[in-house]
Design a protein around this nucleic acid. Sequence first.
DNA 1: TCCCGTACTGTTATCGATAACAGTAGTTGG
DNA 2: CCAACTACTGTTATCGATAACAGTACGGGA
Lengths: 341, 341
Amino acid sequence: MPNKKRPAALQARMKEVALRAKVSAMSVSRALRSPDQVSSETLRRVQKAVRELGYVPNRLAGGLKAPSRTQLAAAIVPSLQNSLFAATLQGLTDALRKRGINLMLGDSGYSREAEESLIAAFLAHRPCGLVLHDTSHTPGVRRLVRNAGIPVVETGNLVNRPLDLLVSYSNFAAARAMTDYLVGRSYRRIAFVGQIASLNERARERQRGYRAALTAAGLPLEEALTIETPGSFENGAKAIVQLMGVRPKVEAVFFAGDVLAIGAMLECNRRGWEVPKQVAIAGFDDWEISRRFAIPITTLDIPRYQIGERAAALMLRRLDGERGKLPPIDVGFRIIERAST
Amino acid sequence: MPNKKRPAALQARMKEVALRAKVSAMSVSRALRSPDQVSSETLRRVQKAVRELGYVPNRLAGGLKAPSRTQLAAAIVPSLQNSLFAATLQGLTDALRKRGINLMLGDSGYSREAEESLIAAFLAHRPCGLVLHDTSHTPGVRRLVRNAGIPVVETGNLVNRPLDLLVSYSNFAAARAMTDYLVGRSYRRIAFVGQIASLNERARERQRGYRAALTAAGLPLEEALTIETPGSFENGAKAIVQLMGVRPKVEAVFFAGDVLAIGAMLECNRRGWEVPKQVAIAGFDDWEISRRFAIPITTLDIPRYQIGERAAALMLRRLDGERGKLPPIDVGFRIIERAST
DNA sequence: TCCCGTACTGTTATCGATAACAGTAGTTGG
DNA sequence: CCAACTACTGTTATCGATAACAGTACGGGA
């Protein structure tokens, strides 16, 4: 039995690095985590031994003793397949990796219950921080994150009472601003197509923003001009077809999501409906494709990548020992005016 | 000092659960992992105590003692923002979550060196499995995964000598099949637009497939008919413009990526070029939008979600104790013929 | 010369769960 | 009636890194 001591894994332990470098394990630990605390000679020998053995530290052991430094963060998005969340994740991982922190990822499928069970599963790995895109949670979630004692960043909406930290934009203000813009362009009969409000706080807020703008402009709210539908190209197409059938004519449609707006634009192209002459189309979230149509789509730019970056930054400030409530960050939004309105 | 013992974290330990349930910690451990090994009475009391304390197990401790059961897997994709990889990830997480395994995620940015350092960082958390989309690796990667002694699944291409497990489709065969299809449709001057071959094995294989098909059909390979460019709508647009300038006329263009094909289609719409009359367009990877154009795009369907699912399944078989080489899985592909060709 | 601070290194106990082992009842079969 | 066996439970040592503490050596100032 040549490999009696380690039958399966061949990974070197810190002790073996220490042996080879002719120092104690503690010096190896220090050399790796705070190189300025050891002599240059020790550092050199440790680095050499690490290289030669291909040593990969064991963060399970480290995190067990020093729970605040597992070098692991967790994030939950509503869906992995939505490129908007992907941009935020990219910002997150890029910023965290600079500090040697890796990311654990899950999707809630837009369900609060799934979010709770996922958080519980994640916390079992003792991450040193948690990022949640959703801002509406079960009571269990509040208890879990309170007990975990780690920084939590929410990113989906600028809410009033965040769990802890908050980096986002206001869905309400954004939708209101876009509707205001359409009103300013002299459209009067403005329809709204968004995701199902009862399932999603962001969808709710956007719809609220739309209504607030109409009311402020003294325009009537018409039941038939609001459509709720899951986001997809197909549903955007269906919505525009439905709205084109309404009389008196709808002048502009605000799609609270670019998938929907793009689906609608493709349908208009197919049917030969002229945009914006017959109907104006506005989107939400500047997908690259929106600007590449023959009639590019007016839309809202949300700095999704930046949300991830700043969420990471906020989390790191806490990990660096900053106590107390850090104020929410509003990353804002920007209307991008194009030919479709 | 009321919280002398646990200053920051409020998380209950297994010992406390044991105390409350009036059993030993070992019984708690057993009740949670293999409920059939304890009496129903013990099980009941443990579950009650767990619920009341909101106990979240510490997988760092568990994984330290039993390294093969960290309940953590790691995956690396070339880019988080590409919806193709997202579909595979979704398949992965869905399948792994059923077994209580969570996923750690990173992106290599299409760089082999980045992949290596990411793998090293991930292995520090002692995942029980690793999924890599890339199939071309640095020597360091080979050493790392060998030493880690965990199952590794590659998913990006059907290669000959995989590191370990393999679930994919053949980029070569797919590109060849699509080119064969175009030849079968009587197109003779067929151009190819793909990602930069020197940077990416998949791009290389697709280009090779294209060439093999032309050669087999007795058609000449023309330098001017192959364009290499990073994937984006804009580059697809540029490519089609460039190719439309070539004389004698290009009859069909095979875009080895739907982003490129869609960018080209949008450009054709904008310029009023008729597809497929003036030029036929074929894509690769069935993006939903491809089927929604006025002239829907012929493309290749790759079962991306299934790749993730089956990668998870393969990994789990290893974790369930299955030794030896498991054969590679070819998930295949399917040509979807639409109006653009 | 002695004291103390600085810079570095080593030793010990510990984080929390679990494998390995060691019981203890109760039961079955010869 | 007792050995052997099943079903369950508890005890101890351990996984690998690190915090806390305890040196050691050297140098500068009084």
